[in-house]
Nucleic acid binder design. Sequence first.
DNA 1: AACATGGCGTAGCTTTGCTACCTAATCGGG
DNA 2: CCCGATTAGGTAGCAAAGCTACGCCATGTT
Lengths: 294, 294
Amino acid sequence: MKHPASLIEAIEQVAPSLRKAERRVADLVLRDIEGMTRISIKAFAAQAEVSEPTVMRFTRRLGCDGFSDFKIRLAQDFAVGRMYIEAERKVQSGDARTTAQRVYQSGVDALATTFSGLDEMLLNTAAATVAQANRIVCLGVGGSSAIMAQEMENRLFRFGLAVSSSADAYKQQMLAAIAEKGDAFLIFSVTGKPQSLVDAAEIATARGASVIAVTLPDSPLAGRSTLLLPLVVPGDEVHFNFPNRTRYGQLLVIDCLSAIVGALKQPASARRLHRIRTSLLALHGHTEAQPIGD
Amino acid sequence: MKHPASLIEAIEQVAPSLRKAERRVADLVLRDIEGMTRISIKAFAAQAEVSEPTVMRFTRRLGCDGFSDFKIRLAQDFAVGRMYIEAERKVQSGDARTTAQRVYQSGVDALATTFSGLDEMLLNTAAATVAQANRIVCLGVGGSSAIMAQEMENRLFRFGLAVSSSADAYKQQMLAAIAEKGDAFLIFSVTGKPQSLVDAAEIATARGASVIAVTLPDSPLAGRSTLLLPLVVPGDEVHFNFPNRTRYGQLLVIDCLSAIVGALKQPASARRLHRIRTSLLALHGHTEAQPIGD
DNA sequence: AACATGGCGTAGCTTTGCTACCTAATCGGG
DNA sequence: CCCGATTAGGTAGCAAAGCTACGCCATGTT
């Protein structure tokens, strides 16, 4: 059983498998989450045209202790979600705060959210998988995630790993098609929906490769991966023209992964970096030291 | 009387003006906010060694409808604050800091440092220059900065701007060589030293283009630009194998720039985004809605 | 068609949250 | 310094909320 990030998601997840009575309960909850936080079980049962025990059973099914507990948790989920919505609203109606302040706040929020959602064990497992892989493939599509895949490649190649990245849907299928046991796929997606990534994950998994997905839990991509690094930054799907704060979260995950992989590869990676540096120096032979990477 | 942002703040604010009984209530609440969300008024009153009505009066004083309402609101406040507190707690728990904690802290620090070094006026000027430019060229080399240049391109093209990016040293020279007045160059470099960027900046400037450099002040590149957005994240040069935290700073600058440019381009950019979306949908014609960008 | 299974509701019990009312402390003025 | 007024705090009782045990009815099975 997967672990949904929030109660609301959990409800959406179980809703299809419910009988009519409980289904009505679920529908009513989702229709007015805020209203839920004030109502009593009796009034709510009446409104949903079911009996109180049905509501009780519904809450139990979601892992709550009872109706009170359900109300509290729902209220908390709602409050967290609202915070982001408010933040977005403020951002749009550019009020007193400067753009820089708002963007900064978004970034800090995204980092905090992502960090508090990180599971050190999962990260270590993922890093170990990557460090031991024969080949590593980083995938992403659609601007942001494609660039993050590149960034991941950029980090990993410094450790002497056989890594490549692609944002090309067709090449992604090809890469998946030649995957073998011992290969690792690192797939980045904010939504977890792009078809080419879902397909690639499915093919690669079927061929025995490790598929590590950095994406939204319960998404199609998440379901096709062998290891999921969940990435949820709420309230980000709506605005296409405003900076996608999830990027900070992705960057955090990438940093963590590459740091751990780097540690696993020590001290070999240090030597390799030195070689890269000297080779770069030899190449353009400037008297002034050129930076390694930038 | 200020309007406290949260119930918790409100409690801290009124606490001094309370009599002993209610003071005990306030203290107990602040000591264990999470515990509050589960406990009953009876149990809580006993724990605080006061009577139930005292607790009731306390909640009323804070503008709540009663104990239930108080519990809900407190739970919501707690949920919002928890993610920050979790992050802080994880980070502060001293010596046993994990890699993820260090990376997170680095990111937050980098954002804070960059933000405090931002000059809103410079940002606005830069954004205006970009928004009005005939052509925009984003440049960067060496992994990280190259990817950031791409990211900048990715943001700007959505606003319907004529933007391109390159990480190819020779192409950079060529792009600079055909620069004209009215063109804008956005050049990213952590060190400000890469020769191809310095050269490109010099050529483009000489040809009358605007050259906006996001880089280290007093560096060769900074000296050749017409507008410098200084980016300093101290203590980053040392570890080659450890994530380069300056990236968070670069991302922040990119976000700010694109946010301001987007605002300048409203509402045309919204329409354009809609077009991108519909064209994408037409392209792969999936029944399931595919995300725009990812 | 008889039986078993599980979904749902009825009825009743316990606890909770709340109010009305009472007592004890505090304070100011004669 | 004492007495009334005022306010802090507690007691007791009650309506409603949350919860549980049990039983009926609609499915599906043999």
